[in-house]
Design a binder for these strands. Structure first.
Lengths: 338, 338
DNA sequence: GTGAAAGCGCTAACAT
DNA sequence: ATGTTAGCGCTTTCAC
């Protein structure tokens, strides 16, 4: 193993000089810097992470806690996780993956062991058990999602209330009067993961403001669940002319069920999806959608947590990304009543 | 921060005793052990990861390299990653997440920095750039997937050749004579990720042995791609009575297209999917499938890499999990020719 | 602009 | 069965 001392000897300088060349924490003459850098390259030196963490009290690692659950749309989580990881590298950090299996105590373990010096928590619940521990350890942390009481915490999420309002407005503008919201799995609502409830609240608010009547139904995973939910909606409210879908995995089933039951999209029924762009683009017809900006959420989460960890500021507060609705082929004017 | 020395003082023993209580590397009297354990709990002590790594030359971290690509079925990757993470915890290890963005040099960086003492590589290509570096650093490593030349490497994967043969046999047993394989995205074949080609090879071999004629077509993502691929297959070979599908994201579209074109499954056409069980179970009809044992692959990958890292054995070799085909509702006897 | 040296918290000989 | 102690490789004063 190549050590800093070896690099120093090779370059004919002292160990501290090598250290300072690497960290840039004091000015070095052009000449020395070059010699040291050449030695580093030549010997293939990489600083020992443990030694560095021990001496500097910073691990250069961000812990990422992801849920074990499978009732969320997995590709979105994965995209966020990947965006976090690649962004972290830009800050010379690595990402440690933790699952919720270990429970809230993982927060304590990570903080106390100095394994990571910042944490990003995904799948935050309204009353998340990890939050008290977070407050008590005072670790730099960012939540992806909103808890009930975000005071003193740094959170980032899509503004789902605005998302619900946006969808309602879009449909109201098109003249729809009777609409339905096909939501996430029931377990998601039961668990009080904020996003589903916030979307519903925003949608309800604006639906009422715009005089829309609407129905909300959760929807489980799989073909049966999706078609069953849709049939029941259409049976109960035959006058429904538009659907808002906040359930990526149900999208193909829903579209197919509409096709099969002889309803044309958007002529007979309009569809707005809340989903990543690629899902919307790969559907037929391409879906009018409010996109889930997974990449941006991951990137911003890292930026927020790095700002905190570097002590530059305690950006304690909410970052709510504004939803963007992209009209595509799946929404159109409400059909004239028969 | 609570240190080992503080625990020692609190328990009235020497630091090394505390260390040995924790590691179990030498026998401790019942009495001392209890006192030390109580002190640890009382003070909320967690060993400093960096210090431990520095002193012991072991980080207790497994690096997991995942692909950035999105043409693989994401939920399977995620399930493997989660299984790896939870299994790693059973070995008192954590998982460091690396993406392929950093390139092959990540292997060098991790090995040289001592950040991880073992690596698991996913999405292995036949001529994977990371392999030479792996051989040269001599790091403990397990590949999920098979490269062209696995000599000296430890690999684990589903036995996709046997999977192909199994599917062919199942259909031949049911009397089918003309079958088609709906494969992964074309990019997957171009990149020479082994699994798709191996499935095809196994399927071809057994199809020939059993006298099946067959067609193979890659299939991209999305509704258009899936239905287009299927229409073309049926146009080209109207006598096709069975489909093997190695493309999870195409499954719902395929089933719907069959339904819509008036073909009953399995009366008119049988379908065998190569997919995780939950995809098979959530389809209608439930699919006869060869399951992708994501959990087991993750778990076994950790076991293999731990065995290696602990030096107990260099299990250099392939672990090919035997495929299991579960007959469900989507396959039946070949229809009598008209 | 550069060097010397004191730790960081732990492990693992080497003691007894 | 337990204690003493010398590092592990790095960062960071302190000194010039």
């Amino acid at each position: 193993m190549v050590t800093l001392a070896q690099v120093a000897r090779h370059a004919g300088v002292s160990p501290s000089t090598v250290s300072y060349v690497i960290s840039g924490k004091r000015s070095i003459s052009q000449d020395t810097r070059l010699r040291v850098e050449r030695s580093i390259a030549e010997l293939g030196y990489h600083p020992h992470a443990g030694a560095r963490a021990l001496a500097s009290n910073r691990s250069n690692v961000i812990a990422l806690m992801i849920p074990l659950r499978t009732d969320m749309f997995v590709p979105v989580m994965m995209e966020i996780a990947i965006a976090i990881t690649t962004t972290a590298r830009r800050y010379a950090h690595d990402v440690l993956l933790l699952t919720s299996e270990e429970g809230p105590s993982a927060v304590k373990r990570i903080a106390a062991s100095g394994l990571a010096d910042a944490m990003i928590l995904m799948d935050v619940e309204l009353e998340d058990e990890r939050i008290p521990l977070l407050r008590q350890t005072g670790a730099a942390a960012v939540l992806v999602g909103l808890p009930a009481d975000p005071a003193g915490l740094t959170c980032i999420d899509l503004d789902f209330e605005a998302t619900g309002r946006l969808a309602a407005d879009h449909l109201a503008d098109l003249g729809h009067r009777e609409v339905a919201l096909v939501g996430a799995a029931e377990s998601v609502y039961r668990r009080h993961t904020g996003f589903a409830e916030r979307t519903l609240a925003g949608f309800r608010q604006q639906a009422e403001a715009r005089g829309l009547s609407f129905l909300h139904r959760p929807c489980g995973v799989g073909h049966e669940a999706a078609t069953g939910t849709l049939s029941r909606i259409l049976a109960e409210r035959p006058g429904t002319t538009a659907l808002v879908v906040q359930n990526e995995s149900a999208v193909p089933h829903l579209l197919n069920h509409l096709r099969q039951s002889g309803r044309a999209v958007p002529e007979d029924i309009s569809v707005v999806a809340i989903c990543p762009d690629d899902v919307a683009l790969h559907s037929t017809p391409q879906l009018t959608s409010v996109s889930i900006p997974a990449q941006e959420m991951g990137r911003r989460a890292v930026e927020l947590v790095m700002a905190q960890a570097s002590g530059r500021q305690h950006t304690t507060g909410l970052t709510l990304l504004s939803p963007v609705l992209t009209p595509r082929e799946s929404t159109g004017p409400a059909p004239r009543p028969l």
